[in-house]
Computed example of a mutant assay.
Amino acid sequence: MFAIVRTGGKQYRVAAGDKIVIDKIDGEAGASVTLGDVLLAGEGSEMQDLAGFTVAAEIIAQAKADKVIVFKKRRRHNYRRRNGHRQQHTILKIVSVGGHTEKQHAGDTAPAAQA
C-alpha cells in the first residue's frame, strides 16, 4: 500500500518501511509523528477512501543538508559577496500507511438517552 502525503509544501510518495527526508518538523529522534494530509492512497490501481486516513512515521534524525554557497559578483566594481546556507531537515521512517482517525466535531457529546 502506498500514499501521497503533503508536508512542508512538498508531496511525497510513501510506503511502509520507506525513509524520506522532509523539511524540519518539531520532535526528537525516536518520537512518533502522524502525517494527516494524505492526498491519495491505494494499492496497485485501486484507490482508497481518504476520510480520516493517516500515515504513521518515526523520526530517525534531525540533520542539516549540504552547504550551498551563494556568490555574487559585479565585474569592474570591486563587489564580491560570499554567503553560505545549510537547510535543516528531518529524516523519517514510515511505520504504517493506512491508519484511520475519528474526527470529532466541535460540540459533539455522547448521545443522550431518549425516553
Rank of each mutant, 00 (worst) to 15 (best):
Q104Y: 05
I60W: 01
M47L: 15
N78S: 11
T54I: 03
A106S: 05
E58S: 01
A31F: 06
R82C: 13
T90D: 10
E46H: 15
G98A: 13
D23K: 14
V5K: 01
A15M: 08
I59C: 00
Q88A: 09
E46R: 14
S32M: 06
G9D: 08
V14L: 08
A51L: 00
I25H: 09
A41R: 07
T101Q: 13
G44D: 10
G42R: 13
N78W: 10
V95D: 15
R81C: 09
G107R: 07
R86W: 01
K64F: 02
L35Q: 03
I25Y: 11
A41W: 07
D108F: 05
Q104E: 06
L39F: 03
H105C: 03
F2M: 00
D18F: 05
E43Y: 04
I94T: 15
V95K: 15
G52H: 00
A16N: 05
Q87F: 03
I4L: 02
V55K: 04
K73G: 14
A3Q: 02
F2G: 00
Q114G: 05
M47Y: 14
L92D: 09
R74P: 07
V21N: 14
V95R: 15
G27I: 12
Q114P: 02
R80C: 09
E28W: 12
K93P: 12
H85W: 02
K24N: 10
G17H: 04
L40I: 07
K24Q: 11
A16M: 06
I69F: 10
Q114Y: 02
K67E: 13
L50I: 01
S45A: 15
T90P: 11
A106L: 03
A56C: 01
A115H: 03
A110G: 02
G84Y: 07
V14M: 09
V5N: 01
G52P: 01
R74M: 15
E58L: 00
G17F: 07
A61Q: 12
D37V: 00
N83V: 11
A31W: 04
T34M: 06
I22Q: 11
A65C: 03
V70D: 14
L40N: 03
A63P: 06
V55F: 04
A61P: 10
V33L: 06
V68K: 14
V33N: 06
P111G: 08
L40Y: 06
Q87L: 05
F2S: 02
